[in-house]
């Protein structure tokens, strides 16, 4: 029987299906477009040279993207090295040590960190950290160290909130079990709470990695944008994202240069997908165990 309720129910269902399809199609279209443009690079460029040559000089026909992969990975690892332990320490403090009011202040601050546009981070890096790095370590100041420091601050909220939730969600009886054996608070946190929360904390670290790897503006402002293999912590280099944003506008569509940039973008996309798979794998393993 056709009636009004039946029709509107049907309509709503089709609308939802259509929305889901539109979103999925958009993602697939981006993947196909970026992938196709990127992979066409290899019509003109030797894939081996693209991935393993450090020489990037497109006007001369040199398309070695190694410096950008290395730059991105180095800056991201520095970010994790600085931001990871700090974020985890904050999370432990918020979950198990701080009084309630302080925790909510820190939560708010953490949310604020997320909301600050990356250009502001970049600006602070440029005006505060770069001169500091130049005076302290010599050299140009710009480079992976400052980029990593900026990224460390930017990923701090991700690590802190995910890890804090993970620690808080460890069942109370586990904590009591450890305390009941005569464990101190610190032994309980280190020996029982953190291991129990580890899968989710790891997932948070991976999310943070993806975030740092993909960050563009802030990095571009402090990295120096010199297309060469990381020469040192405080000398100019470049990353995948910063190189794309620097050069994309000046390359003719369809040229090998343009396509090489697309290939780098495709590398970023593939990296995000791998990270998502890794997060799922890590969290499923946690559940299954």
């Amino acid at each position: 029987m056709l009636n009004r309720a039946y029709v509107s129910d049907k309509a709503a269902r089709y609308l939802l299906w259509a929305s889901a399809a539109a979103v999925t199609l958009t993602i697939v279209a981006i993947l196909i477009f970026v992938g196709k443009e990127g992979l066409l690079t290899f019509a003109d460029v030797n894939p081996f040279a693209f991935f393993f040559s450090p020489e990037w000089d497109p006007p001369q026909g040199h398309f070695g993207a190694l410096p950008f992969f290395v730059g991105s990975i180095t800056a991201t690892l520095i970010a994790l090295l600085l931001g990871g332990p700090l974020g985890l320490a904050c999370a432990i403090f918020m979950a198990k040590v701080s009084p309630g009011w302080m925790r909510s202040v820190m939560r708010q601050a953490s949310n604020l960190f997320v909301g600050i546009p990356s250009v502001v981070y970049g600006y602070i890096g440029m005006t505060v950290l770069v001169p500091w790095s130049r005076e302290t370590f010599g050299g140009q100041g710009v480079g992976v160290l400052v980029a990593g420091m900026i990224l460390a601050v930017m990923i701090l909220p991700t690590i802190t909130t995910v890890a804090e939730d993970a620690i808080r969600d460890v069942p109370g009886p586990l904590e009591e079990g450890a305390l009941g054996l005569g464990a101190t608070r610190w032994q309980t946190i280190w020996g029982v709470l953190l291991p129990a929360a580890r899968p989710r904390i790891l997932a948070g670290v991976i999310l943070a990695f993806a975030r740092a790897f993909g960050e563009t503006t802030a990095v571009q402002m402090v990295i120096g944008n010199a297309p060469r293999l990381v020469p040192g912590l405080t000398s100019g280099t470049s990353t995948l994202t910063s190189q794309i944003i620097m050069e994309m506008g000046q390359t003719p569509p369809g040229s090998p240069w343009n396509r090489a940039l697309f290939m780098m973008a495709f590398g970023l996309v593939v990296n995000s997908m791998l990270m998502i798979l890794l997060v799922r794998w890590v969290s499923n393993r946690g559940v299954a165990k």
Binding site: P173, L174, A178, G191
Partner: peptide, 12 residues
């Protein structure tokens, strides 16, 4: 020592 209502083995 204490034994709790629900078994609470550590995840190890």
């Amino acid at each position: 020592g204490m034994v709790f209502q629900r078994p609470n083995p550590f995840p190890m």
